[in-house]
Amino acid sequence: MLDPYLVLELSRSPSDKEVRGAYLKAVRQHPPEQDAARFQAIQTAYETIKTQRLRLKHRLFCSDPVSPTELLNQATRTPTHTPSRSRPSLSQFQALLRQDIKSVR
């Protein structure tokens, strides 16, 4: 199962209201007719952590395996990072093009 906090883009200690809000937002963004699998993941995530009791249960007893993708999502979702696409610098463009010369094909 995908990490419910990552699916709903929530902090690790949300309130019931925050979970509900995140769930509604996620459902609006990914309606079932557009992405059925994503919608199912959102539903499952909400059912897993919707109350404090369930959140504590998840924290105490979750034994799901940890995938590298989950770690990546966790590392890239923290509020210190900009979630949207950002722009590389001119030097990054130049480095990439210079690097390309060395891989002549």
Binding site: H81, S84, R85, Q92, F93
Partner: peptide, 14 residues
């Protein structure tokens, strides 16, 4: 350089 370019594009600096 490509990895750095991609990560920057994704907004994953830190």
């Amino acid at each position: 350089p490509s990895r750095s370019f991609v990560l920057t594009l994704k907004g994953w600096h830190s």
